[in-house]
Design a protein around this nucleic acid. Structure first.
Length: 542
DNA sequence: TTACGCACTTAGGAGGGACAAT
DNA sequence: ATTGTCCCTCCTAAGTGCGTAA
């Protein structure tokens, strides 16, 4: 394997230390000391409990309670009344809500309330000062742990702070949400370091040297059993190079898309059943932009992609297929698409014959092998990258933005094109509970301005600035409405070749620094131009 | 050929700070 | 100057895909 790193030197991972308060809870009126772990559990629980946006649901609560009570029992096994209490209650309590009179968290909740109040009572200046202190402290730690020296270059590390312990926040219907996830200790962390680098102080699990890998450190997550990695940040040249390769590959797919589509269509009627299955899966990846959707652990939320589709996710009427299922992150994937006859026939057949999955026997590896026949290295995910970037290019072209257009008009079309991509990729977001209210406010505003405009006209006064404001707000309203349930960030960060934007920006004389947020400008520094367009300077105040 | 572990990319939510409106 | 909004960044979960062993 090719080495990614020649040498790698860093100071290890920063492992946050929990500041133990020594709180007690009360069980049946008697005070019980918490340990550092049970205290953290209690604090995390009360925080969650107080959360307005996402309070715990039944399963979260049950998972938490079971573990918490077991922990309390363990920690206090010498106390007789605890033993009795648990003998009688453990099962019952875990099934129902905490009884306030049985377990009393008030010391913990008082503490949280005090913190909140203190924060609120702070004046602007004090708040600023405190946040500046926090920032400085973090920066100081970052200076030590946040960078690595790779081949003589100083590279930023993304997640240089090890994950602190918390209650597991699995998404969707994750069966283990609410369970305690203990963060890694230093002695559980493996560091990737080249041999000539000095070993960071402290006890680490292991120091290894894997120059062909691109991680800085790793550890095993005790709850999920998965390995967690410490990576370089997106600004690192190693990451940027891979990013470029990704988009090159997608572009290559674009060039061959016609012949690849033909290949897929042809194989919808292949003799071998497995080949027909794979081709049908590929069609779903190519056309409605599905993820490949490999089989997953039953100990996770039940989400699916093309391969793992089941009968209940599909309806067919004539030549239209209706999909409705939960995809990655339990985001609802609801679309319909007109499909050619062989696709319809295949899916109908598999719906009849399949036991569990429609495409039983297909996995992402077989899909890759099938696709590689037409283009080496082609895998399912490349299709999403290609489709997204292409969607953006088409949308920008269609927008017909001219050089003379106002900056906010250009920005609007840049956003709308981004939105088209988000829709294609099904990047959704939780609808803000204040959405209706917010929109209404904006609509009120525009009404107000229209009246003002009328009056100005009647009085023969200047109307230019009011007109501009109206135009601006109406575009804003349009965007607010359309992006109600879509999140544009993911596609902008991961799917849109920045050069698609730069190309357009050049022709439209648009300054992309007005569009890409700072971190993305850094991430895409390999593609973004630094020179500012002329019109940008002229239109500064529009 | 399948199962599995590991490495790396893609994902939405939380929370806070910047900025716009007043 | 203050308040409210919204955007950005951080966080870490949840995917994809590859290599390897059985």
């Amino acid at each position: 394997m090719k080495d990614v790193l020649k040498n790698l030197r860093h100071n290890g991972v920063y492992v946050p230390v929990y500041d133990f308060k020594g709180f007690k809870i009360k069980i049946l009126g008697k005070k019980i000391k918490l340990s550092p772990i049970s205290e953290q559990m209690a604090i995390a629980w009360i925080r969650k409990k107080q959360s307005i946006l996402s309070p715990p649901d039944k399963i979260y609560e049950k998972n938490f309670k079971q573990e918490f009570l077991e922990k309390i029992e363990q920690e206090n096994s010498e106390l007789e009344f605890i033993n009795n209490f648990f003998k009688n209650h453990l099962e019952k309590i875990a099934e129902t809500s905490f009884q306030e009179d049985e377990i009393d968290f008030s010391e913990v909740s008082n503490y949280l309330d005090t913190i909140k109040q203190k924060k609120q009572s702070l004046s602007k200046i004090e708040k600023k000062a405190q946040s500046a202190i926090r920032k400085a402290l973090k920066l100081e730690k970052k200076e030590k742990y946040g960078y690595a020296i790779v081949d003589g270059k100083k590279l930023e590390i993304a997640n240089w702070i090890a994950e602190p312990s918390c209650l597991f926040a699995g998404r969707g219907d994750h069966p283990r949400r609410g369970k305690w996830k203990e963060g890694p200790k230093q002695e559980e962390i493996i560091l990737n370091l080249s041999p000539e680098s000095p070993t960071p102080l402290g006890k680490w699990k292991e120091i290894i040297w894997e120059p062909e890998k691109m991680y800085v450190a790793k550890w095993m997550d005790k709850l999920t059993g998965k390995i967690k990695y410490v990576w370089f940040s997106d600004s690192a040249f190693i990451k940027q190079n891979k990013e470029k390769e990704k988009f090159e590959k997608a572009a290559k797919l674009g060039k061959r898309s016609r012949s690849i589509e033909k290949y897929i269509i042809k194989n919808l009627k292949a003799k071998e059943d497995i080949k027909r299955k794979i081709a049908t899966v590929c069609w779903l990846i190519l056309k409605p932009n599905m993820r490949v959707g490999d089989e997953k652990d039953p100990e996770e939320a039940d989400t699916v992609g093309a391969i793992t589709l089941r009968k209940e996710h599909i309806k067919i009427e004539d030549d239209v297929i209706y999909f409705d299922f939960l995809g990655k992150d339990s985001v609802r994937w609801k679309k319909s698409i007109k499909a050619p006859d062989p696709v319809i026939q295949n899916i109908k057949n598999y719906m009849k014959s399949s036991k569990e999955y429609l495409f039983e026997g297909v996995d992402s590896k077989k899909v890759s092998r099938f696709l590689s026949q037409k283009m080496p290295g082609l895998t399912a995910k490349v299709f999403r990258t290609w489709r997204c970037t292409k969607t953006l290019e088409d949308a920008l072209k269609k927008s017909r933005v001219k050089k003379e257009d106002k900056i906010y008009v250009k920005k609007f079309y840049a956003k709308m094109a981004n939105l088209k991509v988000a829709v294609v990729a099904n990047h959704k977001r939780k609808i803000s509970p204040k959405f209706g209210e917010r929109l209404l406010k904006k609509e009120e505003k525009i009404k107000e301005l229209r009246i003002k405009l009328k009056n100005l006209k009647a009085a023969g006064k200047k109307t230019k600035s009011t007109e501009t404001r109206i135009e601006k707000i109406s575009l804003d309203i349009e965007l607010t409405k359309q992006t109600k349930e879509y999140n544009l960030g993911t596609s902008l960060k991961s799917y849109i070749d920045p050069r698609a934007y730069t190309k357009w920006a050049r022709s439209a004389d648009f300054d992309l620094t007005k569009f890409y947020p700072k971190t993305l400008q850094t991430k895409f520094s390999w593609a973004l131009e630094r020179k500012k367009p002329v019109s940008d300077i002229e239109c500064k105040n529009t």
